[in-house]
Nucleic acid binder design. Structure first.
Lengths: 219, 219
DNA sequence: ACTGTTACTCACCGATTGGTGACAGACCGG
DNA sequence: CCGGTCTGTCACCAATCGGTGAGTAACAGT
């Protein structure tokens, strides 16, 4: 893999156009970041290292040290980039939902979160990483993710007050933990605690069970 | 670290005699297995390899190849050894519980499982491993764990029929997923989804929320 | 055109990994 | 006693890891 610009140049080499700017720092930086994200999403954190990222980015690892200050900085950049998650995952159409109770809201958020996590391999890998390791790298990344998730929840919640008499923080933590583990387990082995999670039908069952769980506590 | 026997020998040989290692295959095998389990429990699967296990077991890695056929066989042996989990985790005192409803049962099982997982680092690491990787190694280990858990649940359930009209498989999968993620997240970072999980007070809150969740679906 | 800076590549380092073949010593049957 | 098997050790392999210092090629300012 080469720089995007380099690829573009290669593609139009048929013409006699003079090559322009193979040396483009910001493009290289973007290529590195993109390579890192893709690598993390596809391969997981096991084989996530300087050499692998440089290989995939098609540049020398030295550039990663120079531009990001090593893997730590690169991971931090990924974390910073995680803010874009919020924008992508907020449905602009919030209409059609009248008179939301807290139960309505949590049911909707749970299903949305499950769906979002299902088709975001990078986020899944990060969650798995958080659980498996406790280095400073992961801690920072975890904070960024937590922050992004919190922001997402805030945006989605709007101005709705939680019910009294229930420890919503703890209950919601359990609900979201449930979703995360279900999705991660499914992504890894196609099942969770013996429950098959492969085709759409399986996930429909899971969704129904999730609704029932949420409705059970929040009515 | 050396064999226990070897250590004993070393302790009583002041320095005159050349140290002799006891030739005891089964003891060495046990030492290797124990080292592997401890290593996995303490360090996690990140640095789990032939060299690390041999180092901790105080023997040459060649012996791991000979006795277990490499890491795969060793992991499989760990899985086979996982059956003992069931015996350790079944409270012999099942009296004092009259007229169990399914809700009573699931509440009790949930709390027991959470507690059991909380003080079993090896099991936690295995769960985290399952989620993070999908190699043949992990698959076998996962199966063994799943089997052990299933056996445990059977033993605990006794002869109690689940309620109709509820997809108990899916709901229970969600509940146990919730517990696993909560405990793993806590073990890694002392919190889960912003919910602090450090001292006993925190866990008490989590337990209450868990009860509420279970009671919500199963009454 | 000269100079200095920027962007980038390359070669090398020590350490560690998984894996193998050769060897030494202890034990046992003959 | 000898010879073979079992148990354990050691040296070595190629590959990969993270990390660094030095060199090269393209650019910009003058």
């Amino acid at each position: 893999m080469l720089n995007e610009t380099a690829v573009a140049v290669l593609e139009q080499t048929s013409a006699a156009e003079p090559e322009k700017r193979i040396r483009d720092r910001s493009a290289t930086e973007r290529a590195i970041l993109k390579a890192a994200k893709n690598l993390l999403a596809e391969e997981g954190f096991q084989n996530f290292g300087i050499n692998a990222v440089a290989r995939r980015a098609g540049c020398d690892k030295q550039l990663i040290y120079r531009y990001y200050g090593g893997l730590d900085g690169l991971v931090e950049a990924i974390g910073a980039d995680l803010g874009s998650w919020v924008k992508d995952r907020i449905p602009e159409d919030t209409g059609g939902m009248f008179l939301l109770t807290y139960g309505d809201l949590m049911e909707r958020l749970s299903l949305l979160f499950m769906e979002a996590l299902r088709d975001d391999p990078l986020m899944r890998r990060i969650v798995a990483w958080e659980i498996s390791e406790n280095t400073e790298q992961v801690k920072r990344l975890s904070e960024a993710r937590s922050k992004a998730l919190g922001l997402w929840l805030d945006r989605m919640r709007g101005s709705l007050t939680p019910p009294k008499g229930v420890d919503t923080a703890a209950v919601n933590a359990l609900i979201f933990a449930s979703i995360q583990h279900l999705v991660l387990s499914a992504a890894a082995g196609g099942q969770c605690a013996g429950l098959a999670l492969k085709n759409g039908k399986d996930w429909e069952k899971a969704a129904i069970a999730l609704k029932r769980l949420v409705r059970g506590v929040y009515g």
